[in-house]
């Protein structure tokens, strides 16, 4: 996943690059990591640790073998309050994998019988996307920071200011001198399109997607909303 600039992503390559810290955890390490949060229940911890490790093992296999290896799903049996949910919650953090928890009973409510169990997978994908975004954001953080700084400077001194002024402000900005000054910047609204599902047609919200994204891209991400208009800074600093 790290900063590859290739445009086409060969599948096997992705898998191999997906070596995270968790990848180095042996089943025993997973168990001892779980021990920090859940007391006892060693059998269950072992089972999930093995299952988790097996996924990483599978990632390392050759492609044709890889498709054959199916995950061994787990059934945990035990009275309430003994740590079933807690184990899986902690596990998901360890695994750094997309994780959803669903109550099976959700699908029995009257009027919702068998309500689209596929929604589980859609939720999972949404979570994966969010995770991926966070990861990517970290990768581009340095670059984004620079751009953000430029925008703050634009707001502070305007883009007509001389290089010298700009640089002096940049220095003060980095030192944190200007932290409390008010500026005005245009921020685009979070573009959550309202999407709805058409009953009986799972996945039918396809039609609604990303019109805002498309428009945004073609028009160069126009800012849509101005936030908090209070421009004291120009007076304070134009000495």
């Amino acid at each position: 996943m790290e900063k590859s600039n290739v445009t086409s992503f060969p599948k096997g390559k992705i898998a191999k690059e997906k070596t995270t810290i968790a990848n180095s955890l042996s089943p025993r390490e997973i168990v001892s990591e779980l021990d920090r949060f859940v007391v006892g229940q060693n059998k269950a911890k072992r089972a999930v640790a093995i299952a988790l490790r097996n996924r990483w093992r599978r990632q390392a296999l050759e492609d044709d073998m890889k498709d054959e290896v199916l995950p061994k799903n787990i059934l945990m049996i035990g009275p309430t309050g003994v740590g079933k949910t807690e184990i899986s919650r902690r596990l998901s953090k360890l695994a750094e994998a997309p994780f959803v928890k669903v109550e099976a009973t959700r699908f029995t409510e009257v009027g919702y019988v068998g309500r689209d169990v596929e929604q589980i997978v859609r939720d999972l994908l949404e979570i994966a996307i969010a995770m991926e975004k966070v990861k990517k954001r970290k990768e581009v953080h340095a670059q984004a920071q620079k751009l953000a700084e430029d925008r703050v400077l634009d707001a502070l001194v305007g883009n007509k200011a001389s290089v010298a002024t700009r640089e002096s402000f940049r220095k003060r900005l980095r030192d944190g001198d200007l932290d409390d000054n008010e500026i005005e910047i245009a921020v685009s609204e979070s573009n959550q399109m309202p999407s709805f599902e058409i009953p009986g047609m799972p996945g039918a919200n396809v039609g609604m997607i990303n019109i805002s994204d498309m428009l945004g891209k073609s028009m160069g991400q126009k800012p849509k909303k101005k936030e908090n208009v209070s421009q004291r800074i120009s007076r304070n600093f134009n000495k």
């Binding site: 996943m1 695994a95 997978v121 994966a128 990517k136 953080h141």
Partner: peptide, 28 residues
């Protein structure tokens, strides 16, 4: 700014990949 630097398509692609290969569903 980082959203501008990120390519949405790539994110979805790798998110799909990680869902299919690493996803965990906990059925309570």
């Amino acid at each position: 700014e980082s959203d501008k630097l990120i390519e949405q398509d790539k994110i979805i692609k790798s998110a799909k990949d990680s869902t299919e290969n690493n996803g965990i569903v906990f059925l309570d």
